[in-house]
Nucleic acid binder design. Structure first.
Lengths: 122, 122
DNA sequence: ACATGACGATTACGCCTGTAAACGATAAAT
DNA sequence: ATTTATCGTTTACAGGCGTAATCGTCATGT
C-alpha cells in the first residue's frame, strides 16, 4: 500500500518532528499547502489505515507519529524511478543530469567528494 | 497534463521504435504487461488526447509515434522526485544510495568516469 | 445542568487510473 | 453481395486521490 503525494506532505511534517496533533500539522503545512483542517484529518486517517503513522491518545486529542521511516519511503520512491527510467542504476541518472548541464557547482563538488570516498572494488 | 504509469509503458515501446500499430504495441508489451488489446487502445487514446503521441493513418490502421520526447519525460519525472525528496539536487540522491550501499561496482566505475570529465567550475 | 465548542469518524463527490467490453464502420473473404 | 473479421471509438466500472463538509461525542465554560 503506497502513500500518495498529498499523504507524503503530511509525512514530511511528521518526519520533521513528532508526535504532533492534527492541528499542529495543519499549522506546519500552512506555507506549503492551503488545506482545511478536515483535509488533513482525512489524510491522517488514510495514513493510519495504511499503517504509515500511529496515533496515541493524549487526553482529548491524538498525537500522530510516523511508523514508516523517511529513509524507507525515500528509498522506495527513488528505486521505483531508477528502475523504471534508468535501468535500475544510479549512474545513468547522474549522466542524464550531467548531459543536460543540470548539475550545480555544489552538486559537482559534493559528487567529487562522495566519489572520492568510495572504494574501487565493490 | 502528465502521463500515468501505464501510459508510460506504452510510451516506452514507442520510444523504442516507431511508428507502430496498436497491435505491434500489444506484442511489444507482451513480456512486461499482460494487457488485452482493448486496454492498450484505451491508453493510446488517452495519450492522443494528452498530445503525447500522434497517429497517422496508414490504410486500414493507425500508426502511432511519440510526440513527447523520452528525454523530456525522464527529466520531468526525475526533477519531480529530486525536488520533492532531495532538496532539488542530484548529489543528495547519490549520497543516499551510497549510504545504503546500493551503488553497484558498475555504478561506481561509471560515476568516477563521469565525475572525472566534469569541470571544476560551473 | 446546559449550551458550546473541539475533535475524530463518517460520508461526499468529482476526477484520474487501470482494465476492459461493446459498438460501429469498413475492409476482406467467400 | 453477404458474412465475417478487424480496427478505432465509445462506454463501463471499481478503486484511489484530492479536497472537504457533516455528524456524533465528549469536554468545558457559564
Amino acid at each position: 500500500m503506497s502513500i500518495s503525494e498529498s499523504e507524503s506532505a503530511v509525512m514530511q511534517v511528521l518526519w520533521g518532528s513528532s508526535p504532533l496533533s492534527a492541528e499542529d500539522i495543519v499549522a506546519a503545512l500552512g506555507d506549503t499547502r492551503q488545506w482545511q483542517e478536515a483535509t488533513v484529518k482525512t489524510l491522517l486517517n488514510r495514513l493510519l489505515n495504511k499503517g504509515a503513522v500511529a496515533a496515541e491518545k493524549q487526553g482529548r486529542r491524538y498525537l500522530y507519529r510516523p511508523l514508516l521511516a523517511r529513509d524507507d519511503y525515500v528509498h522506495g520512491e527513488s528505486r521505483n524511478l531508477i528502475d523504471r527510467l534508468f535501468g535500475g542504476r544510479v549512474a545513468p541518472l547522474v549522466a542524464h543530469f550531467s548531459a543536460h548541464r543540470k548539475l550545480s557547482k555544489k552538486d559537482i563538488a559534493e559528487l567529487k567528494r562522495l566519489i572520492a570516498e568510495l572504494p574501487d572494488e565493490r
